[in-house]
Design a protein around this nucleic acid. Structure first.
Lengths: 222, 222, 222, 222
DNA sequence: TATGAATGAGCATTCATTCAT
DNA sequence: CATGAATGAATGCTCATTCAT
């Protein structure tokens, strides 16, 4: 029993090491630019061992992407304690910080770069990343509409608006300029503006809600 | 003189052929996946000739990107005939159709993919593409503010909001799924919604302006 | 005792399985083209087990060849019931059918292919296959000479003549064209002709013996 | 003009060098055992250059075989000066010496070894080597039948008999034992015996012709 | 005893780059 | 000036062989 689980543990550890090495190497060099030698070395294993675990470069790439995706599925919940303004504010910060993490940006660039070669990878990423989050946000927004706090016709568009208002600009720039990294001040600028515009357009009682937002912003920046 | 200019013309033609071939090959295979053989063959020239014009693969890539960028600098003007609603509507359509063109999407993916290896390319693209357009839009929006049609504090944020509301969602999806292509109905959904939200948030006289927008939308869809 | 002999029996079974797998794999892929993985898998055993039985690929090849050779040593007897013509006719058919069996042709090709690398294998095969049969045939022919049925000076040459007349042509072709396979009609053509020429050249009473041969041939073809 | 033909000459020289190197390496190591590195080195060229000339290992092998075959097509003529006995004697020696040349034996072993993988190579070799020679011999034998010197029904079988009687035994042994090489005394034994048996079986006037053969043999051995 | 797992060395093939012509 | 030809250095992948269990 111990022997078996020892072996199995070793296997899992190696697989994990290889997937992590693959992420690092593919991210740094791109799919074509990455060499299996480099992946094996980064994992501290030999090339034949790598091939024992993954049949080919394609297989390794796809498996690594799948693993990343599975990791990402543990997304945060939109519903936090507090009133709507507080919830949206908290969500915006959590979301922005997650999405703008350098490793995720790098991964996104890699997926886009190889979207032609691995269409299913791009589709799967879109489905389990953005689409899944969008659904959570739609549900939340619809709850707020039911509660009479917001007014809109198309929940999907509203959710996408929130995303676009908050993150479109910094994310677009970060995709083009990997060394550029928004600090909290920059993020605050986009988040605060995004929430303001969103609430001005969608809140049933804009004045009241915007005042609450300013209070929340002020509290947060302390 | 005639001989010289003949030579010069030939030189320019070859250079042009090589840059076009480079765009095609790099776009299709990525930087690492592309071979200089493939570029030379696509240009109908020999490899040594290619190396006469561009010292290395890196040089060729950078030059091709620079050329693309220069092409792109001939961006369309924001100011079209008509009132503000008409101008924004026209601009949104022109912009969306341009930005979502498959070749430009492919190019964007390529730049993002190689942003680590060629940071200046990414920066330059950002500067001469999005940033330049942003400036035009800022100027336009400030004119509208001066004219009393819009109200906002930060013109840059307002311009980015317009972009994010209209194009963030379809562009993001198209980056992940190259075979997905928004048709006019899909674009209309995003454009109309984006303009509505933007005007509701920023127009000095929202009701009036939104009514004009609906009229414009109805007219356009005929 | 029972435990030991059980073990011993298992050992022999494994060895047997490995030798058969080796024959199959080496025959199909050649020595260099065959992989130890393939042999182990074909035997249903693991590679380390294979190496427990055979120290190296070379050893395995040589052992497999030796085993094949030992199998072959159980060759058929020349002396069958009947008169000389009947005996030669029966022998010719038995010999031809044996020698032209696809597996034996494949084995012969394999031995020839590796004759440079494994000289002793080629020598041993020649010694225990053709040479051994030749001796049997020589003894038989000498008996017929003693009995006054045949006349010749060199029994070895006579025996080789018989072989060459009957099988040289189809065997040579089959070695070059593995998919070619002589059916009974083709074999009959070579066998009948070979016996006729042999007896015309060596029989003390050709006319009589050739008539007997034709009768035998006619009887056989019924 | 000089430049072009210089290049062309170089090309041909390289191709020749590669084909010869391929023959040497494939003969020594077999198809699977041979490496393209070894071929390139044997030719004194680099591996990429080798690949400029031949697209793949298979292509190289097939081209080498084709070239060998073309070389071999310049076979010797059966018809030599002298009477039939002299002609057959001369032919037998010329044929035996050619066919038993070590390089040709090695080539034959290679073809047989790879007959499964390259069926067309085996077929082509059979067609342009043995079959072609057989036809020449058939024509000659039929002429002798017409002239009344020989009697037989099936010219093809007669021609194959001659081949089998003379060369089957030494060739078969040499295929299995590459280091064994028949000297003239050994060849003489097979040739003389083969011609004797052939003429005893097929000559219209055996006694006379066999006496002539012995005279020819005696003269040759001086 | 039998094996899953591991690897150094090698293989066919390709690439960015440079001469000789 | 433009090119056919050449190559050192990889690249993805496989193999014979060996341990630790």
């Amino acid at each position: 029993m111990s022997a078996l689980s020892q072996r199995e543990r070793n296997r899992q550890a190696n697989q994990q090491k290889l997937l992590e090495a693959a992420l690092a190497v593919f991210s740094a060099m791109g799919y074509s630019g990455a060499s299996m030698d480099a992946v094996a070395e980064a994992a501290g294993l030999s090339k034949p061992t790598l091939y024992k675990y993954f049949d080919s470069k394609e297989t390794l790439f796809a498996a690594m992407m799948q693993a990343r995706r599975d990791d990402m599925l543990m997304a945060f919940e939109v519903t936090q304690p507090g009133n709507m303004v507080q919830q949206l504010h908290t969500f915006a910060w959590g979301y922005a910080r997650t999405v703008m993490r350098p490793e995720l940006m790098t991964l996104a660039r890699l997926i886009m770069a190889e979207a032609h070669r691995f269409p299913q990878v791009g589709r799967a990423y879109q489905a389990s990343g953005p689409d899944r989050l969008l659904e959570g946000m739609m549900t939340y927004l619809e709850d707020q509409r039911t509660a009479g706090s917001l007014v809109f016709q198309d929940a999907e568009l509203a959710a996408q608006d929130l995303w676009g208002l908050i993150l479109s600009a910094p994310r677009s720039r970060a995709l083009y300029e990997p060394e550029w990294q928004p600090d909290d001040a920059i993020l605050a600028r986009y988040i605060n503006n995004g929430l303001r515009v969103f609430l001005r357009a969608y809140a049933t009682e804009p004045d009241q809600v915007l005042a609450a937002l300013e209070a929340e912003i002020a509290a947060y920046s302390q």
